[in-house]
């Protein structure tokens, strides 16, 4: 009984902010203006296959870059002494405390045709270099915004590794590279998996960022949805349908990632700490 009372606020929260909106999305997505059931909206979604593909593709690229950069950073940080680690981890988290829009505006300022980089280039006599409204700019924006979410889980899984295991590996004849391949990397996979989930999903569903840095030709699913609610084409039914499809896609992705995690966990069932 007590448990239920304690759970009540959570349940209310779930209903108001998760269940109801989901039902609304489902309802809008599957009905027309008169409220009659229709699959027309869902068919409409297939007018944007390129946008969906681009979202997944850019999300994938950004995640891959985050993985490489994030893993290296986490690895280097985890090898430092505790004091320095704390400072660096705070530095890694610092951008999270800054407003999302502000960060994009500053990125725009840096990348613009008469922005920071081009300013420096031209002062050295180089010609200007177009960086705005490119796929690269969008990926940069994603990496910049989500890198933290890759570094943190990987770092925490790296520092969790018992120093004694590394000694044992060295003792048995493994040099640093072999120790990394055979012990450090496999034991950091849980961190990698959650890092991927935490970067890929927000990257795929992000918006604004793509519109501001990538321009019209780099619209992502998020931007299309945005357009159908607040933008030029007002049609909440099609917007909801797109949301629905995106949700299903992400659900599948999460499922795959979870599967990886579970496989890893069942192996980790052998863990003795």
């Amino acid at each position: 009984m007590k448990k239920r009372i304690i759970l009540t606020p959570y349940i209310v929260w779930c209903i108001v902010f998760i269940i109801v909106p989901m039902v609304l999305v489902l309802f809008f997505g599957l009905t027309d203006e008169s409220g009659k059931f229709t699959t027309r909206n869902l068919c409409e979604v297939f007018l944007y296959p390129d946008v969906f593909l681009r979202s997944l593709w850019l999300g994938f690229k950004a995640t891959a870059i985050c993985l490489v950069v994030g893993y290296l950073s986490a690895l280097i940080i985890s090898r430092l002494n505790v004091k320095l680690q704390k400072i660096l981890i705070i530095l890694v988290m610092l951008p999270m405390w800054m407003n999302f829009l502000l960060k994009i505006y500053s990125l725009m300022f840096i990348l613009q045709d008469n922005g920071f980089i081009n300013g420096i280039l031209s002062s050295f006599g180089f010609s200007k270099f177009n960086m705005m409204n490119t796929e690269g700019a969008v990926i940069l924006g994603m990496v910049y915004n989500f890198l933290t979410y890759m570094i943190l889980p990987i770092h925490s899984s790296l520092v969790e590794i018992d120093e004694k295991l590394l000694d044992a590996a060295k003792d048995l004849g493994a040099n640093y590279f072999m120790t990394f391949v055979k012990v450090i990397f496999p034991l950091s996979i849980p961190g990698i998996v959650s890092g991927i989930a935490m970067v890929f999903i927000p990257s795929v569903s992000t918006f604004i960022l793509s519109k501001m840095l990538g321009g019209r030709q780099n619209f992502l699913v998020g931007d299309i949805i945005d357009m159908h609610f607040l933008g030029g084409i007002y049609d909440p039914h099609i917007g909801s349908a797109i949301s629905l499809v995106l949700m299903i896609l992400l659900l599948i992705c999460t499922g795959i990632i979870n599967q990886l995690q579970n496989e890893n966990k069942s192996k980790k069932g052998a863990l003795v700490i």
Partner: peptide, 25 residues
Amino acid sequence: NTIFQNYALFPHMNVYENVAFGMRV
């Protein structure tokens, strides 16, 4: 070679792989 004070076995490997570790390397 050392037998450590706490066992320091590789948790992501089974018994066979643990024993094989040094030879794999």
